[in-house]
C-alpha cells in the first residue's frame, strides 16, 4: 500500500538528466509548470507534450515507473475530467435522463485539463526520479542562498528538508514493521466505524512516535559529536557545478516557454 507511492523516489541511473545541476532541474521544472498552465492551442499542447516526452526518454527511467507514478492520481484526473465535462456551460452534445448536460466546450476542457495534470505529474516525477534527495536539497539551499541577506535561514531549511526526506523511507519501513507486529497480535486496522478505526491506530502510532523521537535524539547527538555547527564554513563532498549542459538546457527551456507564452498572448 505505502510502497505504491513511487512519486518522489530517486532512481540511480546514468543519464544527462542525472548529471545535470539540480538548480537547473528545479528552475527548469518551475519554467515547465509555467508553460503547462499557460499553454493554449493545439501547437502549444503538441510542443509541451513533445518536450515532456523527450525529457522522459532522456531520463532513461523505465516508462512503467512513470505510469506507476500516475496510478494513484487516476482518480483525480478522471474526476476533474467528469466535472469539466458536465459542468461547463456551452453547446450541449448529450443529455441523459438526469438532466446532466455534456457540452462540447466541456469535452475540450476535460481533455485539456487531463493533459495538463498528466504533464504536471510526469514533469515533477522526472525531477524526483533523476535527482537524489541530497542534491535536491543542495540545489534548493543554493537557490535560496541570496535570501539569507534578508534573514532566511537557507541552510537550516535545506538541512531540515534533507533530514525529513531521509527519514521518510525509514518511517514507512517502521510503520510497516509495527503494523505487522500488531497484526500478529490480532490488531485489525481495516474494519469498524471511524472511531473504532482511529482507536485501532493507537497501537501503531505510539511506538512510531517513540521511535521517531528516539531517532531524532540519536541523530542530534550524532551530528553534534561530529561537530555540526550549521552551515557556516561547511564545504561539500560533491559540490554542484553549472556546466555547459545546464546552459543549453536553460536556453532550450526559456525559448520553449517563450514560444508557449507567445502562442497564448500574442
Amino acid at each position: 500500500m505505502l510502497k505504491d507511492i513511487t512519486l518522489g523516489q530517486y532512481l540511480p541511473l546514468n543519464s544527462p538528466l542525472h548529471r545535470m545541476d539540480p538548480r537547473t532541474k528545479i528552475l527548469g521544472l518551475i519554467l515547465l509548470l509555467v508553460g503547462i498552465f499557460t499553454v493554449e492551442g493545439s501547437i502549444g499542447y503538441a510542443l509541451m507534450i513533445a518536450f515532456t516526452l523527450f525529457v522522459v526518454l532522456l531520463s532513461r527511467v523505465p516508462l512503467k515507473m512513470y505510469v506507476r507514478g500516475l496510478k494513484p492520481l487516476w482518480f483525480i484526473i478522471v474526476f476533474t475530467g467528469l466535472l469539466n465535462l458536465f459542468l461547463t456551460p456551452g453547446t450541449t452534445i448529450y443529455v441523459n435522463g438526469y438532466s446532466l448536460h455534456m457540452t462540447y466546450e466541456g469535452a475540450v476542457l476535460a481533455v485539456k485539463m487531463a493533459i495538463r495534470l498528466i504533464l504536471l505529474i510526469i514533469s515533477s516525477a522526472v525531477l524526483t526520479y533523476t535527482t537524489s534527495p541530497i542534491s535536491l536539497t543542495d540545489g534548493i539551499e543554493k537557490l535560496l542562498y541570496p535570501f539569507t541577506k534578508i534573514g532566511l535561514p537557507a541552510h537550516e531549511l535545506a538541512m531540515m528538508m534533507s533530514i525529513a526526506i531521509r527519514f521518510i523511507p525509514t518511517l514507512i519501513e517502521e510503520t510497516e514493521k509495527i503494523s505487522k507486529a500488531q497484526q500478529a497480535r490480532g490488531a485489525d486496522f481495516g474494519s469498524g466505524g471511524i472511531i473504532q478505526r482511529a482507536k485501532a491506530l493507537v497501537p501503531m502510532l505510539v511506538p512510531l512516535f517513540i521511535s521517531a523521537f528516539r531517532r531524532a535524539d540519536e541523530l542530534a547527538v550524532a551530528m553534534e559529536s561530529r561537530c555540526y555547527r550549521g552551515g557556516t564554513g561547511r564545504t561539500r563532498l560533491h559540490p554542484i557545478h553549472f556546466r555547459l549542459l545546464d546552459l543549453w538546457t536553460g536556453v532550450v527551456l526559456v525559448s520553449l516557454i517563450g514560444v508557449i507564452i507567445a502562442l497564448r498572448f500574442v
Binding site: A181, P203, M204, P207
Partner: peptide, 8 residues
C-alpha cells in the same frame, strides 16, 4: 525481531 519496539 526487537519486539520491544512495538510496546505501546
Amino acid at each position: 525481531q526487537y519486539p520491544e519496539h512495538q510496546l505501546f
